[in-house]
Design a binder for these strands. Structure first.
Lengths: 252, 252
DNA sequence: AAGTTTGAGATGTATAGACAATTACAGTTA
DNA sequence: TAACTGTAATTGTCTATACATCTCAAACTT
């Protein structure tokens, strides 16, 4: 991994740490630095640009606080996986807390197949007639043998790869996109609504038809903001709630 | 403003900057340092605790990033005003976007009265038999003459003040607490759930009974984490949705 | 073969000092 | 009086250095 030296101007009015921050940020966004990859060590960077290690640390601190990298004492600094898992309101992964509680939970693959694109799907993905096929997944999330949510996912079919059950360990839409397509999931838009469930959803989740549910529609974008994945998830209204804390006492 | 020196232990395994951070945070929470007030200068703090100015800056940087203080070059560092309006997911004010769109919207006071505390209410506010009375509000929010949400609010009755219609310009729970009680709203806990509306709620909102709705329960706390307000709001499921953007491209 | 120790390399904390940039204010000048 | 000027105070940036702490792997011991 090479960071180019000529892009830092020590005589500029723009602080050096900020220039370095922007430089590394750019590399990550371009994909020159991929998630999981390590940055050069602080020592290396300070030598390459002939700046103090403290200044390098200041730049890295900004990246850490932006959530783009994480540092591990004794190991190094690494590019973070874009946090589609959210801090904001735990919307990203409704199931995060359940998993953290150590409950016996699992994802089950109900169906996975290649489908022909229809007009609606092509519009959603902003693609023309040339994209004929999509991948289609149906999964169920359950904890303690109780089905809690049901999700339908679509992504563009661009790699002919068998769909392995084992991959369902990360059945998230970004995970599936990374595994089964050539696209890089980079950002997400999520819309949360309330709804009453359909007959089909009620049957799958084992609840009464027309029960209230959370409905989360998610669109995943690649670095060029092209939509590369779409999903619709239904969460049992009697099993999920979202809690948020505001103000200065957040952590207590 | 005095920060006490004996509370920093330079030989502790806990970093000095963190001890200082906690110390100042505590002062702000206690109200020893009030919003708008200035902190001692970095130089003063470094002298008082006999630590380096860079270490002081590190502590202050944490406070800045936590949003508790803000620094102005050439002037000083000041305690920030707590923000109960949230950025996280616009949950704080479901109606914020509607208001920003410039729609013709208003809050209507349906009812405001003093009520006797029952057991449930006393438990919710963690008060004993001595607190006999509470304030009770019922309000409706509407836009373009359509009723969109309905909210019930409770707060401790501690000031005998007439309830003025004009005050309903800020009918938020923190606003009502600040106006009608001696308490200072400092933080909030919100729980979002889905539900089907009751007959009463359906009648008020002009929707069918058992329609799906967002249900937001909010508890407001004072600086001592004592609950000083509670509300329950119902939002029409067919009129509200929450959108969030995640990932690194958020700003683009 | 399995466990232990050691050391190199990485990030974390802390210091002391220099200079830059901004603000506020007092003093000077037109 | 009004505008300008300079100076002190304050935060912002940057350096160079020292040592602490953690990780990993190689070397060593049992």
């Amino acid at each position: 991994m090479v960071i180019q030296a000529e892009t830092i101007d020590k005589s500029s009015v723009i602080p050096i740490y900020y220039q370095l921050f922007k430089l590394i940020e750019e590399q990550i966004r371009r994909g020159d630095l991929k998630p999981g990859e390590s940055l050069p060590t602080e020592h290396e960077i300070s030598l390459r640009f002939e700046i103090s290690r403290m200044t390098v640390r200041r730049a890295i601190a900004e990246l850490v606080s932006a959530g783009m990298v994480y540092a591990q004492q004794g190991r190094g600094t690494f590019v973070a996986t874009p946090k589609l898992d959210n801090i904001v309101f735990e919307l990203n992964d409704f199931n995060q807390e359940i998993k953290e509680r150590g409950l016996n939970c699992k994802n089950t693959l109900l169906e996975a197949k290649i489908i022909r694109a229809d007009k609606e799907l092509r519009e959603r993905f902003q693609v023309g007639e040339e994209s004929k096929r999509f991948l289609y997944f149906r999964t169920v999330f359950s904890a303690e043998d109780e089905r809690l949510s049901y999700e339908v996912k679509y992504t563009i079919y661009s790699k002919s790869r068998p769909i392995l059950e084992s991959e369902l360990k990360d059945p998230s839409l970004p995970g599936l996109i990374a595994t089964h397509t050539e696209y890089v999931p980079m950002s997400a838009k999520k819309v949360l609504q309330v709804a009453v469930c359909t007959e089909e959803e009620a049957a799958i989740l084992g609840i009464a038809p027309n029960s209230p549910v959370f409905l989360v529609e998610q669109t995943i974008y690649d670095p060029d903001l092209k939509p590369v994945g779409w999903s619709k998830a239904v969460y049992r209204g009697d099993r999920y709630k979202l809690t948020s804390y505001d103000g200065w006492y957040k952590k207590d």
